[in-house]
């Protein structure tokens, strides 16, 4: 995204303010959706086909995005943004992605255990005892309550865990 930024001077915040970037992303999305809709029959006005609704919405989205870009002149410049929680967010996102990959092979308990050990031990650097207690407690405890007591089917992995 920032590649498109035509090197703003040190004093001027330039054209690419936050709202304008958001608007540009949305506009791109609208164009992409319209392109993807091409495979669906549009139908006629009286008999709209499956493609009519997405196409109309994509058009509307593009319109709104343009308005956001036009009206975004007084939004804060990109540089004003700080992301203090970037580390946490990446860790959480990574853990969730790992869970999606591993849930059905490793089973619920082992996957959750791994996530908790990673988040508490590696990200938060808690003491090993606390990490062990919390990870085991939460992963096995929630499984016990939901799978054993409430019969919610949760995946199991090796060793029946």
């Amino acid at each position: 995204m920032t590649d498109a930024n035509p090197d703003p001077g040190p004093t001027s915040p330039g054209f690419w303010r936050t709202d304008r970037i958001s608007g540009a992303v949305l506009l791109g999305l609208a164009v992409a959706i319209a392109w993807e809709t091409r495979v669906l029959p549009l139908g006629t006005f009286g008999h709209p086909g499956p493609g009519a609704m997405p196409m109309a919405l994509a058009f509307l989205l593009g319109l709104c995005a343009t308005m956001v870009i036009v009206g975004g002149g007084d939004a804060p410049p990109l540089r004003a943004i700080r992301w203090q929680e970037g580390g946490h967010a990446a860790g959480i996102l990574g853990s969730a992605a790992f869970a999606a990959l591993a849930l059905e092979t490793l089973g619920y308990r082992l996957t959750i255990l791994a996530i908790l050990v990673f988040l508490l031990g590696v990200m938060e650097r808690r003491s090993p005892v606390a990490v062990a207690l919390a990870s085991f407690g939460i992963s096995f405890g929630t499984y016990f309550v939901f799978a054993d007591l409430l019969k919610v089917v949760l995946p199991t992995g090796p060793w029946g865990l």
Partner: peptide, 9 residues
């Protein structure tokens, strides 16, 4: 982490 676990569950 607890909330994440609950979200996943």
């Amino acid at each position: 982490p607890l909330i994440l676990v609950f979200c996943l569950l």
